[in-house]
Design a protein around this nucleic acid. Sequence first.
DNA 1: GATGAATGAGGCTTCATTCAT
DNA 2: CATGAATGAAGCCTCATTCAT
Lengths: 215, 215, 215, 215
Amino acid sequence: MDIEALPTKGERTRAHIVATAAQLFWRRNFHGVSVDQVADAAEVNKATVYRYFADKRDLALAVVKFNGAITLEVFFAATFDKYSAPQDRLAEIYRLAYQAHAAIHADTGDVFGCPMVGLALELGQDMPEIREEADRVFTQVEAYLATIARDALASRGASGDAETLGRTLMQLQHGAFASSRLSADPSRMLDAGKAALALIGFPDTPILEKEDSRP
Amino acid sequence: MDIEALPTKGERTRAHIVATAAQLFWRRNFHGVSVDQVADAAEVNKATVYRYFADKRDLALAVVKFNGAITLEVFFAATFDKYSAPQDRLAEIYRLAYQAHAAIHADTGDVFGCPMVGLALELGQDMPEIREEADRVFTQVEAYLATIARDALASRGASGDAETLGRTLMQLQHGAFASSRLSADPSRMLDAGKAALALIGFPDTPILEKEDSRP
Amino acid sequence: MDIEALPTKGERTRAHIVATAAQLFWRRNFHGVSVDQVADAAEVNKATVYRYFADKRDLALAVVKFNGAITLEVFFAATFDKYSAPQDRLAEIYRLAYQAHAAIHADTGDVFGCPMVGLALELGQDMPEIREEADRVFTQVEAYLATIARDALASRGASGDAETLGRTLMQLQHGAFASSRLSADPSRMLDAGKAALALIGFPDTPILEKEDSRP
Amino acid sequence: MDIEALPTKGERTRAHIVATAAQLFWRRNFHGVSVDQVADAAEVNKATVYRYFADKRDLALAVVKFNGAITLEVFFAATFDKYSAPQDRLAEIYRLAYQAHAAIHADTGDVFGCPMVGLALELGQDMPEIREEADRVFTQVEAYLATIARDALASRGASGDAETLGRTLMQLQHGAFASSRLSADPSRMLDAGKAALALIGFPDTPILEKEDSRP
DNA sequence: GATGAATGAGGCTTCATTCAT
DNA sequence: CATGAATGAAGCCTCATTCAT
């Protein structure tokens, strides 16, 4: 993640290209961004892009892996380190997602949804590796959410299938990204977050500090 | 919907092109299909496509409208005509979605997810009309689902916010399509269906005929 | 051959592109000419080239076929129509080859050799069809030369194997083109012509009218 | 020729690159081989190639010189040392050429013809030095063949122009390579060898050990 | 009115070559 | 000195779109 810390110049260049492409693909999709634009944005020559990636699709795969790593590390692992109560963890995850989207929305007026799903839907048929990579990431997401579910059931002394609930939470998370993007409204993320907290039996956990102050 | 029934030849040709493009865009995305391929598949000359649609994006918009109409009519309106109990309606909606995906999966080995979301994510940034059209459709979907929620709450004598529940059901439906496609596994649709039925308080409603045999 | 006479506009365009490319590939080789240059020289858009040829190599194959047809028709069939004595036919063939090369040499200072062999050597490993097409043409050339050999043996009442002699004449013809090009000297064609006429037993047949006037 | 014997490491590296490139250019042509591939095959860094050669074309020129040296030394000088009778010398030359091609054909299924002519035809227009270098080599080849012709005429007590015959033999040799490559059939070399031996008046000299058994 | 033919713009990719360590 | 890294210039090809019959 920390590009500066990479040992060789080549690895730094590669990581810089991936991070740049991730931004562009997220905002304008795979087909909406040319390799020229990636190279320009990354301030490298186009041939340098091809030194590190076999082709544009290979770059997309690297971007999906990059996004997957961020998702798992920044959204889940860090949250799990920071909080231990399941409702706090789930609230934090939605809070982070909401804040990220709200910031971008304030900046651009748009909501870009989940960058992995975007790429996987656009390229999945053409490039099964991308779909599979995304699937692998979401299997891990599901495991994190199942842990939250398990802990929540335990803390409430309730019985239930944590794996099934984990899957539902994961699907609801997909829906949160999709409906936020389709409606261009980041607050859909909060709706989903509340529903998710209700699903694990903690309906009143706040996600934002003063969130219910709006009419 | 019934192309044969349209009054003029022009309308039939146009509808035929839309239906053909809808299939192709669904399976191979907008950028994965050329206008040539649409014309070939529809067995019309390419210039004929441009007689009915200003450009390829205009065709995509027509496809989203077409898909929206099918969704609302075939999936929701028809289901509401056929069933009146909320749990039966919800089960039928997921049953239809599952069956459609399972058939395509058996045929192609792939799962293509929601065709509107696919196009909207691919073109949304470029073409706000498409995103807005999809949003409009899902607002109606949400209304149907809120009706189901309202009826379910009423039939159970339970209190709760049907609109909020409708939104959750709609987001879960998005998640069902997304995770089915990402995992290439239509049975994710059933997982979501069960969760949805549980959400409206009818957890034991079967979606398929003999699926409720617990081990 | 007569482009004007082709029935459809498309066929005329295609034939015009082939003829243009044949010139360019002959003078500057396959890799020395870009598709842009072919399109410019033919005064059509580059995409028009790709309407008629799958790719640049497919164009090269068409050029080899075109050159083969010219060789067989203009050099051999026409000569066989015009003359009946074997020595006259052989002399005419070398005369035509010499004159063509001498004219180009006077014009450009260069000698370009056999256009089929040029393309076949440049692309043969990559594209067996081209090598095979050229081989097919030279099998027919060999048959024409075997006929000359047979007639020559018969007219001299000599015995010998016309097929073997035909092959030698064909190989000598290859050598004539090669050594003319390597030395940039069209008169090597005359050297080979004289040797060929000697091989069929008519060593004193003149190829050019006053050719031995030079010191 | 013997790379190991070269005095300095630089000379050895250079010679090694040339020999490697000669193989690659022979089999896949000049434009079919990238400098990267040459460097990889020679197991040197690409910049090392540019240390020894101004550019890729300069490397090609070195390759032609290398091939010319081999041709003159291995094929002609060595043969002239080994045999003194003209028919033996000519037979040996074709034997060597045939054996080399037959071995490669057995190995790869392909016949690659004369490596100098290949490069000269591909680059001749672009790089006159290459054409001229090849021409220089073939002038020497022609001289060797004229010596054979002269000796053959003398040993048969026949009169005739040895220079002219030498040129014919040289052209026939070109034809032998060309038609072998175009037909992908090394035995064309033997056909030409027999014709060459007939031309110098020794038609029954065998090229291979047991090939003269007539049916 | 429908279609074969044509086009301009731009995308992806590769290559020979040079730089900087 | 040798090498990993970088680059500019093209080349091939495709696509959405329009023209002309």
